[in-house]
Structure formats: structure tokens, C-alpha cells
Amino acid sequence: MSDLIFQVQGESASATKFIAKARQFKLVIDEPKSLGGTDENANPVEYILAGLAGCLNVVSHLVANEMGFSIKRLQIGVSGNINPDKFIGNSTEERAGFKSIDIKLIPEADVSIGTLSEWLKIVQTRCPVKDNLTYKTPVKDSVEKQYVN
């Protein structure tokens, strides 16, 4: 199979709000009031965590099916901690991103814990979002000047 290309485009609605479009879907990204936003929607790092959970959900069901069992219910919890000092410009010491991310999967399935452990090992290696968060992915930045006539 050839590479799939995913893209998001959008425009700043304010200093803390971004409105993006992914395919036919509108995504509103905003900061909580404590960070100067209007709290209209999730913030960028919450979208990362939600994207990770959503990807784990898809891969979890796919792998379970390949292993011959079904998941009746799947709860996924994802949390991460960030020191905001670099983000707000108070420090250059710590990284701006997550220090760590914790994932908890609680599947309801008629299989042993041994099978679930094997299932989890496979899921961890096949989730594209987890792969992007775990390993360096080249990111190319550019800027263009918009000229006003």
C-alpha cells in the first residue's frame, strides 16, 4: 500500500483559538481560561492525548480481531504532565512538551490476562500516533510573508 497523506489547515481566530479543517470536519482548538483562552474546546495538547486514545482504540480492536477475540467494551485513559515554564517564556531549562504520558487500557473481553498482555504488546507497536510520540519524526517548518497590496 502506498503512503496515505493526512492534512489539517486552518486559521487563527484569536491569540488562543485556532479553527482547523480536517477533511470535512471543523476542529476548534482553544485554551482554558487559566491560559488566556475562552475554554470553547480542548487545547492542542489535549487534542494530542485524544488523538492517541482514538488511535489506540482503532488499533486495539483491529489487533483483537486478528487474535480471534472481540472487545465488548474498551475504556482508555491518557494523561500527561507538562511544565508550562518554557511555553510561557519563563525558562529554557525544561522541554516544552510532555515530560511523560501515561496510558491505561481497560478492555472487557473473554480472554486471559496473558492474552491481553500479548495484545497490548502488539497494539503498542502498531499505533501510528504512539509511534510519533515515542520516536523522533522529522518536522519541517517554513514561513511565508503575505504581501498586502
Rank of each mutant, 00 (worst) to 15 (best):
H61C: 03
H61K: 14
L62G: 02
V63N: 01
A64F: 02
N65T: 10
N65L: 04
E66P: 02
E66T: 04
M67H: 08
M67D: 11
M67E: 14
G68Q: 11
F69T: 05
F69V: 04
F69N: 10
S70T: 12
I71E: 06
I71R: 09
I71Y: 07
I71V: 15
K72G: 11
K72A: 14
K72S: 14
Q75P: 00
Q75D: 15
I76R: 11
I76H: 11
G77N: 15
G77R: 13
G77C: 12
V78F: 12
V78L: 10
V78A: 15
S79H: 13
G80E: 04
G80W: 08
G80S: 09
I82T: 01
I82Q: 01
N83K: 11
P84R: 06
P84F: 07
D85S: 14
D85L: 10
K86N: 13
K86H: 12
K86Y: 07
F87P: 00
I88G: 03
I88P: 02
I88K: 07
G89A: 05
G89R: 07
N90G: 08
S91E: 00
T92F: 03
T92K: 08
T92V: 04
E93Y: 03
E93G: 05
E94P: 00
E94C: 00
R95K: 12
A96I: 03
G97Y: 05
G97A: 04
G97S: 06
G97R: 05
